[in-house]
Amino acid sequence: MRLTCPLCGSRDRREFYYYGADTYLNRPAPDAPMAAWDDYLHLRDNPAGVTRDLWYHEQGCAQWLKVTRNTVTHEISAVELVAGPAAGGKGASE
């Protein structure tokens, strides 16, 4: 398996750390009901098909990545930076 990091290009899976569903990006408000926190911390879908999860490019650019992939076909359809486009990167400074 390879992931195409938006900054580093195509890299071997061993360079990445898998974190889990991208649910972690949607943190409830501090005063949200307990059910929302329970959902956020513990409840995950287990889809046969398209799923989105977080990977960390540990042995590369050290960025968190949002990966859209298919658990049935193993196709990876998108890899995006969680942090958004870089200010000094391509398109910004050129």
Partner: peptide
């Protein structure tokens, strides 16, 4: 020198600047 694009570097005499991460060189 200028800030390098991802995966790039620049050189001017002994000075070099290497891209090392998002918004970091």
């Amino acid at each position: 020198l200028s800030f390098p694009a991802p995966g790039q570097s620049q050189e001017n005499g002994a000075a070099r600047i290497l891209w090392t991460g998002r918004d970091q060189a």
